[in-house]
């Protein structure tokens, strides 16, 4: 897949490039700030050579606050097919809500630390590139923790709680099965139980499923 990296620390930019290239992906551009990112994507869109996914840091020059989130929101609005994965030193549920804003297609929001687990990280980038979702477990934990529907959530079995968390992170049933070391069938049963207990209608597409869960937790 074709990747654009926006990260102001040269060390990390080089590291990410090496990591993705090593796995056979194509890093087509590396930029150091949000303006450069939007410019680069604009140029590529003009030539009809849009990348599959953008990996962007939240804090970038000039203000070093939340440029990355704002640029990501704008890119997602301007180029609906583009996957955007935002990396951050901290994850805050607020930013996740802003990023998703009613559309969990091709969006990711992860802690920078997750880069340490190379395999999982590259999987997440690929998932976002294909239009899936990758939410950091910590964001999901925040969402689960502050959801107003604690009494309903308490009705889930511990295993169902785990499955719900992984589902909210954007994982497919088979990925959840691999993670929990159970069969696909067992996961499917848990998922339908969860949807029944939460009163949600069973939806087919993985990203729509994530959106349903997030909407449920956030409301």
């Amino acid at each position: 897949m074709r990747v654009v990296i926006a990260e102001d620390s040269v060390l990390l930019r080089e590291g990410l490039t090496r990591l993705l290239t090593d796995r056979g992906h194509d890093v087509v551009a590396g930029v150091g700030d949000a303006e450069g990112l939007i410019g680069a994507i604009g140029d590529m869109a003009a030539k009809d050579e849009l990348p599959d996914v953008v990996v962007a840091d939240v804090r970038m020059p000039p203000t070093h606050t939340d440029e990355g989130v704002r640029a990501a929101v704008r890119l997602r609005r301007d180029h609906p097919g583009l996957g955007v994965l935002v990396l951050s030193q901290y994850v805050e549920e607020q930013y996740a809500t802003e990023l998703i804003a009613g559309n969990s297609r091709g969006v990711g929001y992860l802690l920078k630390d997750r880069v340490a687990d190379v395999g999982e990280f590259v999987d997440a980038v690929a998932r976002v590139a294909e239009g899936g979702t990758a939410l950091d477990p910590e964001v999901v934990a925040q969402l689960l923790g502050r959801s107003r529907k604690q009494d309903v959530l308490a009705a889930l079995t511990p295993r169902e709680g785990e499955v719900l968390g992984l589902m909210a992170e954007g994982r497919t049933n088979s990925a959840i099965a691999r993670q929990l070391v159970v069969s696909d069938g067992a996961v499917e049963k848990h998922v339908s139980n969860i949807f029944m207990k939460l009163g949600l209608s069973q939806s087919d597409g993985d990203h729509r499923r994530v959106l349903a869960v997030l909407t449920y937790l956030g409301s």
């Binding site: 804090r59 606050t65 939340d66 030193q89 901290y90 805050e92 607020q94």
Partner: peptide, 8 residues
């Protein structure tokens, strides 16, 4: 100092 306090 939490980043989100400065940002939001």
């Amino acid at each position: 100092h939490p980043a989100i306090l400065t940002d939001r």
